[in-house]
Simulated assay, not measured.
Amino acid sequence: MSEDTLRDSLVDIGWRGWVWVGVSVALLAGLVYIADFGEFVTSVRRADTSLFLIALGLGLSSLLVWAWVWHRFFEKVGIESTSSETVRMFLTGNFLNSITPLGQFGGEPIMAYIVSETTDAEYKRTLACVVSADVVNATPFFTFTLGGILYLAVAGSLRGPFVDIAALAVVLLALLSLTAYLLWSDKRGLGDTVIRLTDALEARLGRGESVFESVRESVEGVENAFQDAGDDPRFLITTAAISHLAILAQIASLYFVFRSLGLPTEFVPIYLIVNLSVIATLSPTPGGTGTYEAAFTGLTTLFFSVDLTTAVTAAVLFRLTTYWPGIPVGAVALLTLRNKMKANPGS
């Protein structure tokens, strides 16, 4: 694929992206239908608008926290970007992830390309920044989840599906930790492995020396960029600690969603619902739509004595404060970057 073709595919999302938005909406509509559409509408109308708007503001603030982590890594490796530009680039990347299946997995190269085209920075450095920032931003999901699991274990309530969630959270956190170590370690284990494989392939083929040399240089360049991004443990710890504010904002958002519906607002159940539901976003649907709301609904009925319709209403309203606003906001952000991306010839 040429750079012009790739650039066009990024700035013009096309019908396939909007088809996946339609799939997400259909899945959500199916859940609402099962819960009784008429009762759902009645529940939504009963919600306190002022409290919901507070929840919306808190939910959107989590996006700003994650964008701030991006900006912090940009400053770390010397990528020039204003705070406003960084927010728009993050929202654009978040939008692309939200409208594609498995968007949470492997979207970093495209997001790094957007950053490279917008800032005219070297692609190797933007890739290192985006991946490093996403690793840091993913950490709170698992630390908070494990914190909830630990609480259930101490309280003697760790049984049934919670055992499976705990096991999955531990495995994912271990994989995340291993990824961070391989990317940021100065031992160069990952890069050396790739280079050894490249050398072996070159020796076997006996030709293409210039191509293999280019691959080795690219691997070394990317590895050096990652080491620059993660060579300061204090920087990483501080950034990860502040990244946790995004999840706290979502917990506060759910608190006000529950208040708007007149539901109980005990901290522990709200904490557990927000963090345990995150595992459901690992489904193949865009943004985990459908599976997330189903998991959220199940947990709400488990922790509170509420009917199915009320639980679905809470799930939908919560997602309207944390997930769905990111789609139109991200689409607008993409349009604001469109001209600049087309103007830059590529790094």
Rank of each mutant, 00 (worst) to 15 (best):
M1I: 11
M1K: 05
E3R: 05
R7V: 13
D8V: 13
G22D: 08
V25C: 14
L28K: 00
A29D: 05
L31Q: 04
Y33I: 13
D36M: 06
E39S: 08
I54C: 06
A55W: 00
L58G: 03
L58F: 14
S61A: 12
V65C: 11
A67Y: 04
H71S: 07
R72D: 15
S83W: 12
F90Q: 05
G93Q: 04
G93T: 09
N97M: 11
I99K: 04
L102T: 13
Q104P: 08
I110Y: 08
A112N: 02
I114M: 09
I114G: 02
S116P: 09
S116M: 07
S116E: 06
E117C: 06
E117W: 04
D120I: 06
Y123I: 12
Y123W: 09
V130T: 14
V130P: 01
V131E: 01
A133P: 03
D134F: 05
V135C: 10
V135G: 01
A138N: 15
T145I: 07
G147N: 07
A155V: 11
R159E: 15
G160T: 09
G160Y: 12
G160C: 15
I165N: 03
I165G: 01
I165T: 10
L175F: 11
S177E: 13
T179E: 08
T179A: 12
Y181Q: 07
L182D: 01
S185C: 08
S185D: 11
S185A: 10
K187R: 10
R188M: 08
G189C: 10
L190K: 02
G191T: 13
I195V: 14
T198M: 06
D199S: 13
A200D: 15
R204V: 14
G208F: 14
F212M: 10
E213F: 10
V222T: 06
N224P: 03
A229Y: 01
G230E: 11
I237D: 07
I237H: 05
A241N: 03
S243H: 00
L248H: 07
A249Y: 01
A249W: 00
I251N: 03
S253I: 12
Y255M: 06
Y255A: 04
F256T: 02
G262R: 02
G262K: 02
T265Q: 05
E266M: 09
P269T: 11
L276D: 01
S277L: 09
S277A: 14
I279Y: 06
T285V: 15
G288Y: 02
T301Q: 14
F303R: 01
F304N: 01
S305G: 12
L317A: 08
F318K: 00
F318I: 06
L320H: 03
P325C: 11
I327W: 04
V329H: 02
V332F: 11
L335V: 10
L337H: 02
N339F: 07
K340T: 15
K340A: 14
A343L: 11
P345E: 15
S347N: 03
